[in-house]
Design a binder for these strands. Structure first.
Lengths: 266, 266
DNA sequence: AACGCAGTTCCGCTCAGCGGAACGGGCGGG
DNA sequence: CCCGCCCGTTCCGCTGAGCGGAACTGCGTT
């Protein structure tokens, strides 16, 4: 497997002095978030992050003190604690686009009877911050907070198409276009043509590019400064495929109204 | 004013050595979570937490490095970053209702020697997603996945009582209160009085409302967003009838603990 | 019993990080 | 327009917080 070291790319943009122990503690927290294992032991963490057991133990003690992790009394293994929910709730409260978008998403979900999502960008990735799911048995749910690349999927492409040219260029030249599924666009020229098309018609479509069996239609939400978020409607591939055009019209109309409310001037 | 040293009260429950800088960093994060202000400045944080500006700045730099906070480029003020969502999403995955509830249900079933069930809502209906049955000859088993109306039976009424008023109103006005058994409440006023009572005492009781010869005691499970599930204990009517009050106490206690673990804030 | 492997604790050395002070820049009032 | 104020940021030398190798404990397996 190709070794992708997450620590290499981060040192580049380090702006000033920072505190190593805090970053180590954050790394421990993210280890809980990344791994699919339900809990982690001290030695396990120490080996993965290549720091001493004593340090890991002290870090966990500190995090435990603040309820960011909890320890199972008998197995002595650690998991994330409820305090992270508290932080996430506060983060969501801050996002003003979220409050405004919620209404729009509810309307979209009701109109299409599919899942509506809200994504924001974080550097060269995007993540879902909210979703509204329809009341039906087979429906799509997305994973909130997890970063996804911008070149795979409708929401990502919508960001990529509408950020300013310099950022788009940076993304396309710096980041390899990894295939998330068999349908992901991995050829740069093909992707740029696709982005041109997205800009021309105002919305992006993905048929299984990020998630096999899922399709998505996405359009950008603008405020006065530019694209701040992307709203999508997504669902099972075969259910969405025949109604892409109508769905796109609904999404574009909804994001257009929302953009006006956020101070966008066309 | 009496000088309260913040380092004294925390050392009480400190189990081992911990790292001061990590706890300070956590305090900074929680400051963002607690205050109702949308963002915070360095000096502001330094004054509140009584640590030097330089330290606060280094902490923020470290947290920024890991996307736990973000800084507005022009105002130079800080807010929580998207990484907290990532942590919360992972926390939720670990402790999703189903996994967590299973443990609770097993305890409830063992304690009462009756069937414990977990229901989720699907629009204007609810369905069982899990059950734990006791090891005895005469016992109740429910049908998983089949939709039931919300106004008949303890689990349904528990949903109806604790969803927000708009949804409850929609259900009551749109849907005729069909009699599932002879004991189903079909009068709207009577049902609303019943729901008031359920909210007041925290649990719902059904004596043969949905299934003749069966009784059930149910209480809601909350996460940060509201009621996500309902847990019930159910069994043969005449066996459960004399112990409804004690059973209710057990269910309410179990769902209460579960709700806390799911991020419910009372 | 002896071993292995887990989490936890100990303790002395050392450099990470603290903090007072200086710096730069944006804003507002004189 | 200039000056003072207060903001965030950076500097730098001193020092004790915290690192880590090693010892300790307790559980489960050989």
């Amino acid at each position: 497997m190709t070794e992708v070291n997450s620590s290499t790319d981060r040192s580049a943009d380090a702006p000033g002095r920072s505190v190593a122990s805090i970053e180590r503690a954050a790394d421990v927290l993210f280890l809980f978030a990344q791994d699919d294992q339900p809990d982690l032991g001290v030695t396990e963490i120490a080996k993965t992050l290549e720091i001493s057991k004593a340090v890991v133990h002290r870090i966990l003690t500190s995090l435990r003190e603040r309820n960011l992790v909890v320890v199972d009394a008998e197995s002595r293994r650690y998991t994330l604690g409820p305090a992270v929910l508290q932080l996430a709730a506060a983060y969501r409260d801050r996002l003003d686009v979220r409050n405004l978008a919620m209404e729009t998403m509810q309307q979209l979900s009701a109109a299409t009877d599919e899942t509506a999502t809200l994504s924001v960008r974080n550097g060269t990735t995007r993540l879902y911050v909210d979703q509204v799911t329809p009341a039906r048995e087979v429906r799509m749910t997305v994973q909130l907070g997890q970063p996804f690349p911008l070149h795979a999927g409708a929401s990502g492409k919508a960001f990529l198409a509408f950020v300013d040219a310099a950022e788009r260029e940076a993304y396309l030249s710096e980041r390899p276009l990894e295939a998330v599924t068999d349908n992901t666009i991995t050829d740069r020229d093909a992707l740029e043509r696709e982005l041109d098309q997205i800009r021309a018609r105002g919305y992006a479509v993905s048929l299984g590019e990020r998630q096999v069996d899922a399709a998505s239609v996405a359009a950008p939400v603008f405020d006065a400064d530019g694209v701040t978020a992307v709203i999508s409607v997504c669902g099972p591939l075969e259910r969405l495929r025949p109604i892409v055009t109508e769905t796109a019209a609904a999404v574009v109309e909804a994001t257009g109204l929302l953009s006006v409310r956020l101070g966008h001037r066309a």
